[in-house]
Computed example of a mutant assay.
Amino acid sequence: MADFPRWIDDPAVVARSSAEAGRLARFYLALQGCQLGRFKEADEHLVELGLPVRLSNDLWTDSCRGFDQPADFSVKVLDHGLPEDLVRKAREALQPDASYWDDHRYHSPDVTFYSHAHQLDCTDHIIDQLIEAMRPSLEEVAPEVSKTLTVAEWWVHQRAPDQWHGHPLHFDTNEQLLRDSLGTHVEHPAMSSVVYLCEDTPRFGATVVTSQRHRFASDSDTAALVRPRMGRQLFFDGGYLHGVMPGKPWMEESPVTQRRLTLMVGWWTSAIRTSEAADPPRPLMAGGDGTWQQQLRDAAVAHNTFRHGRAEEVVLPTTSPVWVDVGREETEVTSCVDPPYGRFFLRHRKQIDEDLFN
Rank of each mutant, 00 (worst) to 15 (best):
W7Y: 15
D10N: 12
E20Q: 08
R23N: 08
R23E: 05
L24V: 05
G37Q: 06
F39Q: 03
F39P: 01
A42D: 03
L49Y: 01
L55G: 01
C64A: 11
C64H: 04
G66I: 05
F67W: 14
D68I: 10
V77C: 08
P83R: 06
E92L: 11
S99F: 04
W101P: 04
S108K: 08
Y114V: 04
S115M: 01
C122H: 11
D124F: 10
I126P: 00
I127R: 00
E139F: 08
P143G: 08
K147P: 04
W154R: 03
W154N: 01
W155E: 02
L169E: 00
F171C: 02
E175F: 11
G183K: 04
V186I: 11
H188M: 00
P189I: 01
P189R: 00
F204D: 02
A217D: 09
V226I: 10
R232Y: 05
Q233A: 11
K248R: 14
W268G: 00
M285W: 08
Q294K: 15
H303A: 15
T305P: 14
F306C: 05
H308R: 11
V322L: 13
R328K: 15
E329F: 13
E329T: 09
E330V: 15
E330C: 14
D338M: 10
F357M: 15
N358E: 12
